[in-house]
């Protein structure tokens, strides 16, 4: 496969990652949100595998398989079970309206391109053009955590941020060492379990997963 084609395919996948990120930002239904998250993981995993093949870094295959099994299958499954158990049927509420969120998201993407411009000029990697997308994904994940009220959507935002970081690592340096990757994957898995437990507790305490309820914990003046 020639490098030019790979770079194109990679950019194509990066575009899909960004698209799913925007999709998650505007998606109101929680089921669709989880599906979008799974799709993002899938694009990420394919992109990692291709980069690993071209660059000859075989440990990236393991990363790719880990991503596939964790972020495409296991985490969406856990979140799904959680939603069913907690009987969350409510549509996702946002704090800022959706067009506004979209505009902020676009601004963030432009800002990311602006930030990574010097890196693109210096780097020789084929994946260098996707760094801006990775950074934008991280920021959009954070934006999603800010604009959503529901604890489950906030966790999805957090996981999307992690996806962005992973993507940044792959595109900037052809991935982190395998040990680090394994550690991060394990962390994410454990974090998901801890979130699950906390959700149950928050749900029983507040009878809701709306984080606005937690404003009651504020110290009085």
């Amino acid at each position: 496969m020639n490098l030019q084609t790979v770079a194109h395919i990679n950019s194509f996948l990066a575009a899909f990652v960004l698209l799913t990120a925007f999709g998650m930002l505007v998606q109101k239904r929680i089921y669709s949100l989880i599906h979008l998250f799974a799709w993002q993981g899938l694009f990420l995993s394919i992109s990692t595998a291709i980069v690993g093949y071209v660059a000859g870094r075989h440990h990236l295959y393991i990363s790719s398989i880990l991503t596939l099994s964790l972020k495409v299958i296991l985490l969406p499954y856990i979140l799904h079970v959680l939603i069913v158990r907690l009987k969350i049927r409510k549509e996702v509420e946002t704090i800022i309206n959706i067009p506004m969120t979209m505009l902020i998201g676009i601004a963030l993407v432009i800002f990311s391109y602006h930030l990574t411009a010097p890196v693109r000029e210096l780097s020789t990697l084929i994946t260098r053009s996707t760094l801006a997308v990775a950074l934008a994904t991280v920021m959009i994940g954070l934006l999603m955590m800010i604009t959503r009220r529901h604890a489950v959507t906030q966790i999805i935002g957090f996981l999307a941020m992690e996806n962005g970081l992973f993507f940044a690592a792959t595109s900037a340096t052809y991935g982190m060492p395998l040990v680090v990757e394994l550690g991060v994957a394990l962390d994410i898995l454990i974090a998901a379990f801890i979130f699950g437990i906390f959700f149950f507790h928050i749900h029983t305490t507040f009878d809701s997963l709306d984080v606005e309820q937690m404003a009651r914990l504020k110290e009085g003046d």
Partner: peptide, 12 residues
Amino acid sequence: QGRIQAYLIYSF
């Protein structure tokens, strides 16, 4: 503020 979003905005 007592709101997670506010704290996230600070870091953002």
